[in-house]
Structures are given as structure tokens and as C-alpha cells.
Simulated scan of single mutants.
Amino acid sequence: MATGKSATLSDLRKRLERWLRQIGRKRYQPEKHYMRGPGPATLQREATEPRQREL
């Protein structure tokens, strides 16, 4: 009976280790999600419209 229990614990340990490794690989990288600077629509609009002077 001890063999069955140790096999179950061993499987559980392997699954837990695999899961933890997957979490480690999937780190949040904010530089991939946040826009830096104006987008292409803004750049195109500014290129075609005359710029108004602010007072």
C-alpha cells in the first residue's frame, strides 16, 4: 500500500513542478502591452492637417 501512496505523491510532485515551471515562463512583460508614443492614425492625421497654434 505504501507503494501506491508514494507513486501518487510522486505524480503529484511532478505535476506541481511542471506547473510551477510553466508559471515561471509566462511572466508579465508590460513593454509588450503598453503603447509607446502616438499611433499610426495620429501620425497620419497630424501629417495631413495644418497645426494650429496654441496661445
Rank of each mutant, 00 (worst) to 15 (best):
K26L: 15
P30I: 00
M1A: 15
R27S: 11
R45W: 04
S10T: 03
G24Y: 05
I23S: 07
R27F: 09
K14A: 15
Q44P: 01
W19N: 07
Y28S: 03
G24R: 06
L20A: 12
A7K: 03
A2R: 05
R27P: 02
E17F: 10
W19G: 11
A47Y: 10
D11S: 15
P38M: 02
W19L: 15
G37K: 00
Q44K: 15
G39W: 03
Q29G: 08
R45G: 11
Y34D: 08
P38Q: 04
P50F: 01
G39I: 06
P40L: 11
T48C: 09
M35R: 15
Q22R: 15
H33N: 13
Q29F: 09
P40M: 08
L55C: 03
A7I: 09
K26Q: 14
L55F: 02
G37Q: 07
S6K: 14
K32T: 09
L12F: 00
A41N: 11
K5E: 02
R27E: 11
Q52C: 06
R45I: 11
A47V: 02
T42E: 09
R45C: 01
R15W: 00
Q52F: 01
R13A: 15
E49D: 01
P30G: 00
Q44L: 13
G4S: 07
G37R: 09
W19R: 13
A7C: 05
M35D: 09
Y28V: 09
Q44T: 06
Y34L: 12
T48W: 01
K26W: 08
E17N: 14
T8Q: 04
K5S: 03
P30D: 08
D11A: 15
L55K: 10
W19F: 14
I23P: 04
R53Y: 01
G24M: 06
R51M: 07
R53H: 11
L12Q: 14
G39P: 07
P38H: 10
E46F: 04
A47S: 10
S10W: 05
T8Y: 00
K5A: 08
G4K: 03
P50W: 07
P40D: 08
Q52Y: 00
E31Q: 10
T48E: 13
P38L: 08
G24L: 10
K14Q: 12
K14S: 11
T8W: 03
K26C: 13
E49P: 00
E54K: 11
T42F: 04
R51F: 04
E49G: 02
Y34V: 08
L43V: 03
R13T: 05
K32V: 03
A47G: 04
